[in-house]
């Protein structure tokens, strides 16, 4: 039955992939490209807020309060005569700061805890799952209100609340993926070669878990930005005079009979951010799952 002769070269060699091919793939997808542009726009605007903003975001110009957009004030002014455009730019900085820190924090914590739950001993899994379910049972805003009432409103409180409430989500996804990978042959093969737990987790589980989580994180960023805006809208977020999209929206809401521009100026960046990160997340999902690559 083994008449076949052993060949020295099985098949043709495979072409090497260029290093940043994923970026090209992302840019080839129109939605991904659009998302990336929006995200870059937001990030650059927030990062360059000091250079780009024409006025100090705290400077009052009482004579021109509630002014409509003009060349002098690109997005008009608010009820105290502050330049809305400058406040939007600086508000973006706050929003992104909260989003990145809390999403990053919950991603890292969720990954670690989820992998421990999935790969570790059974009792640890049960304990962690109990904890996650308990935390998940709190409604985010209610939990936030309770914590803020106790600790007082601040940026750090918001970040803390977001991390606590979103870690279970990441951890659950990580755990589920870890459980399904745990008994696959390549993990068994690694163990049979003598790899220890840490090596298996960091070097073999992590690369297979990280892609779906990064995508989830990218889609979570707008959610967190909305939470921050929502809490600031309620007056429980950042303290004035620090600008936030939420507090700008709140001002706009109070003066909606005088001018629509505040609501528009506060709402548009939220929409752009949500769209940008969501499109980017979806495009990343298509690119980073090598099994779904079309041109192969």
């Amino acid at each position: 039955m083994t008449a076949a002769i052993e060949t020295t070269e099985a098949g043709a060699p495979i072409k090497r992939e260029p290093r940043f091919s994923w970026l090209w793939q992302l840019l080839r997808d129109p939605l991904g490209c659009f998302g990336l542009i929006l995200v870059l726009l937001i990030v650059l605007a927030a990062a360059g807020a000091d250079i780009l903003s024409p006025y100090d975001y705290k400077a009052l110009d009482i004579k021109a309060r509630l002014a409509p957009p003009s060349f002098e004030h690109l997005l008009g002014t608010d009820n105290l005569g502050r330049d809305t455009f400058s406040r939007i730019l600086h508000g973006g900085r706050i929003a992104l700061y909260v989003a990145l820190v809390s999403v990053g924090g919950s991603l890292v914590l969720g990954l670690i805890l989820g992998m421990l739950a999935g790969y570790g001993p059974r009792w640890l899994d049960n304990l962690l799952m109990l904890l996650f379910d308990a935390v998940r049972a709190f409604p985010v805003i209610m939990f936030a209100l309770a914590v803020i009432t106790v600790v007082g409103p601040s940026l750090e409180t918001i970040i803390f609340v977001v991390i606590v409430t979103s870690v279970p989500g990441y951890a659950r996804i990580t755990r589920a993926a870890t459980l399904s990978l745990k008994n696959t042959e390549f993990i068994l093969a690694e163990r049979s070669l003598g790899a220890g737990t840490v090596r298996v987790m960091v070097s073999h589980l992590l690369p297979n878990l990280i892609a779906p989580l990064l995508i989830l994180a990218s889609m979570d960023i707008p959610v967190v930005i909305t939470i921050e805006a929502g809490l600031s809208f309620l007056g429980l977020g950042v303290k004035p005079p620090t600008p936030s999209w939420g507090s700008i929206l709140n001002d706009g809401y109070s003066f909606i009979r005088n001018t629509p521009w505040l609501v528009i100026a506060g709402g548009i960046p939220l929409i752009i951010t949500t769209l940008g990160f969501t499109f980017l997340g979806e495009a990343m999902r298509d690119v980073f799952d090598p099994k779904m690559k079309k041109d192969r």
Partner: peptide, 8 residues
């Protein structure tokens, strides 16, 4: 195939 780490 499944016994090789998919991302290595």
């Amino acid at each position: 195939v499944a016994s090789l780490s998919p991302r290595k």
